[in-house]
Deep mutational scan, measured.
Amino acid sequence: EPLWIRPDAPSRCTWQLGRPASESPHHHTAPAKSPKILPDILKKIGDTPMVRINKIGKKFGLKCELLAKCEFFNAGGSVKDRISLRMIEDAERDGTLKPGDTIIEPTSGNTGIGLALAAAVRGYRCIIVMPEKMSSEKVDVLRALGAEIVRTPTNARFDSPESHVGVAWRLKNEIPNSHILDQYRNASNPLAHYDTTADEILQQCDGKLDMLVASVGTGGTITGIARKLKEKCPGCRIIGVDPEGSILAEPEELNQTEQTTYEVEGIGYDFIPTVLDRTVVDKWFKSNDEEAFTFARMLIAQEGLLCGGSAGSTVAVAVKAAQELQEGQRCVVILPDSVRNYMTKFLSDRWMLQKGFLKEEDLTEKKPWWWHLRVQELGLSAPLTVLPTITCGHTIEILREKGFDQAPVVDEAGVILGMVTLGNMLSSLLAGKVQPSDQVGKVIYKQFKQIRLTDTLGRLSHILEMDHFALVVHEQIQYHSTGKSSQRQMVFGVVTAIDLLNFVAAQERDQK
């Protein structure tokens, strides 16, 4: 057995438009009618409502009807409940999964919650491996369901041993009777949507819809739904939504950006999952974080739909894509998950301010006199920076000697690579993860907040409520011999709460 199987392995699926269902090699399930009293909570997966979006479509000038398939009504709160249950049931049916076995899954959280929910009911041990950027709410729900959680670096490539995929496979090879159901490759993922989600949409719309818009992560949702719609409703256009920084969209030119990270969760990847059939997507749109969270908040405030950030991405694209539809036509959007997962993220004004998705003037509360002053007023001194090749031991000596707790790590040209902190280095040394002679590049981390000289002290204040420091950066445009230009970030300084307090105190003292 291989040590790991690539999540982007070539698909062996034989589905073709027009091929009889009787030739399918898979076990198919028909939607079942729910009894009045459910035998367990797993029976509350599927049969989610279709809700008309009344205000947002009109606000953006849509002539067509805009409908939302509300997947956050599933038992675990997301569309991923469907595939989690289906993968477990299919693994039980073919004898792969037996009582007492362990389920391991690399996930952005929602599939993990679905699997942990099913594992709690069915009696399996469950280990979820997820990147650090995923919300604390997801972690809390997983723990409450009895799952064990392993976190991995957000910026690790999918084929790196440190990625959530790599760590999951390492655990599988170490733990007896453990299984990775593997949402990236498992046919049960798109089949769950082909058999149930798509049929529900067709039934709820009486077979009449002209466009379907869905955000894409593993691709199982859009693949399964689109294949069924292509068979039953061939005139329906399928629109895929991919965040900026991901590479799922086609044509490839759409993916060209210097951005590699994004805040919206559960969609987009740096590889093409095996289950994603991009041939059934008629057109791709890219979405960005700001519009995703703005539209998610709009869905909550104006439509009462308590959905997550990827739902915002989907609707932001839908109001663009559906401009081509006329009166009497219908566009369906998939709202994948609930706001429950993001209470401390985009639902929080403070978080939105820190990330730059909300401006101070958007909030009406009274601010102190210094709130709208610029960061450049602080008069920061030149920063202490270190090269990635310097040793951890030497870096600790320098920081202690100069009285700093942290320093930016830059390359020879001064471009920011990340940050090192005294606390992080000492804990890594004590844990045996690094040696004093190791290069400081081994303990770089990139989960820090950046701020510009033109940003306000109010925004800085919000950042420092949650973080010990902020890195002050400025952009530099560099022209190359080819005539092309590129933008790079340079370090201007490091600012802490002490710097802000000293500035405010000094100004008030001078005024007296």
Rank of each mutant, 00 (worst) to 15 (best):
S485C: 15
K433Y: 08
G240V: 09
G418E: 03
C307R: 02
H462S: 14
V264D: 01
N341L: 00
L363H: 12
F404T: 07
V409S: 05
Q329I: 01
L254D: 03
Q256D: 05
E508V: 13
T257D: 13
G268E: 02
K449N: 12
T344M: 06
I398D: 09
I444E: 09
Q435S: 13
E360D: 15
Y479K: 11
G493I: 13
E263N: 07
S310Q: 03
E508L: 13
P336I: 07
A470E: 04
C331Y: 00
W369D: 06
G312M: 03
V333I: 15
M425F: 11
F293N: 00
P383L: 15
V275F: 07
E291M: 10
L380V: 12
L501F: 09
V410E: 14
S427I: 11
I334D: 00
A431N: 11
E361K: 13
E412G: 13
E360L: 12
R452V: 10
R340D: 03
L500C: 14
R350N: 10
D499Y: 03
L384Y: 05
R278E: 03
F293I: 01
I272Q: 06
K320L: 12
V495W: 09
Q259P: 12
L453Y: 06
Q302I: 03
I247H: 07
L387S: 14
F492Q: 11
Q406G: 13
Q489K: 11
E412R: 06
Y445F: 11
F404N: 01
T389V: 15
E290K: 14
D349W: 00
E253L: 08
I300H: 04
E360A: 13
G312Q: 02
S313E: 09
L501M: 12
P408I: 04
G393S: 14
K402Q: 14
H480F: 14
V386D: 02
H480G: 03
V386Y: 11
K446G: 07
F503Q: 01
M466V: 15
A506Q: 10
H372Q: 13
V434E: 09
Q478R: 15
L347S: 00
M343Q: 05
I238Y: 02
H394V: 10
R488C: 04
E465P: 07
D349K: 08
E508Y: 12
L426C: 15
M352L: 13
R374I: 12
L501T: 02
L248F: 04
S461I: 02
T314G: 15
A301N: 12
L254M: 11
F285C: 07
G393Q: 10
R278M: 05
V410I: 14
D242P: 01
L378F: 15
G483Y: 13
E258A: 03
L501K: 04
T279K: 13
L378Y: 06
D337M: 03
H394E: 10
I272G: 05
V333S: 06
I300P: 05
L335S: 00
T421H: 12
Q256V: 14
K366I: 12
A413G: 14
T274W: 00
P243G: 06
K446T: 11
T344L: 05
D499H: 05
L299H: 04
R350F: 04
E397I: 04
G304R: 03
I444A: 13
D510W: 13
P408V: 05
P273K: 06
Q507A: 13
L335C: 04
A470P: 08
Y262H: 02
E361V: 13
Y269M: 01
Q323S: 06
K345T: 06
I267C: 01
Q406W: 04
A311I: 06
F285R: 04
A316M: 02
N502F: 11
I300V: 06
P251S: 09
L299T: 05
L430H: 09
Q507Y: 13
T364R: 12
D438I: 10
D337W: 03
G356H: 08
L358M: 13
S287H: 11
L254G: 01
R297H: 01
E252S: 11
L254F: 04
Q487A: 13
S485Y: 13
L417T: 12
H480M: 11
L387H: 02
E397W: 11
V420D: 04
D277A: 08
S428Y: 13
I444G: 15
Y262N: 01
R452E: 10
F469G: 14
S461Y: 05
F295H: 03
L501V: 12
D337E: 05
I390M: 13
R278C: 02
E360P: 04
P336N: 04
Q435C: 14
E377I: 09
E244L: 02
M352K: 07
I239V: 04
R350T: 10
V333R: 04
A470I: 03
S313T: 12
A322R: 03
E253A: 11
A413L: 15
L500N: 00
M298P: 09
L276H: 01
G483D: 13
L373V: 15
K512N: 13
G403R: 15
M425D: 08
Q323C: 09
Q302C: 15
T395E: 02
L373N: 11
I463R: 07
D277E: 08
P243E: 07
A431V: 14
G414H: 05
I300S: 08
K484S: 13
S348T: 12
E324W: 07
L384A: 04
P243V: 09
A316F: 13
R400E: 09
D411M: 09
M352S: 02
L384R: 07
D277I: 00
D467Q: 10
E361Q: 13
V472S: 10
R278D: 00
A292R: 03
L276E: 01
I300F: 08
W351L: 03
V319M: 15
M298D: 10
L358W: 05
P273V: 06
H468G: 04
M425N: 07
T257E: 02
G379R: 10
V280T: 15
D455E: 11
H462D: 14
V281K: 01
V386F: 12
L457Y: 15
V495E: 04
S437M: 12
I238L: 04
G493W: 09
G458T: 07
L426M: 14
I416H: 10
F448M: 06
A505P: 02
E265C: 00
Q489Y: 14
G458Y: 07
R350M: 13
T314R: 03
V281A: 09
I396Q: 08
S428K: 04
S427R: 10
T391A: 08
D467E: 15
D438A: 03
P408W: 12
E324P: 12
V491P: 10
M419H: 09
L500K: 00
I267D: 05
E252R: 12
E265L: 02
H474L: 08
L353M: 15
F285P: 04
I463S: 08
A296K: 02
M419Y: 13
L501Q: 01
T314P: 11
Y342P: 00
L430N: 14
D270M: 04
N288F: 09
T385W: 05
G245E: 05
L417C: 09
T482Q: 10
S381G: 14
Q476K: 11
T482I: 10
E290T: 11
G308A: 02
G312T: 05
L426K: 10
Q478C: 14
L380M: 14
A497Y: 09
P368F: 08
K512D: 10
G328W: 04
V333F: 08
H474A: 05
Y479D: 05
M490F: 15
P436V: 15
R488T: 09
E475T: 03
F492L: 14
D510K: 10
S310I: 00
Q478H: 15
T274H: 04
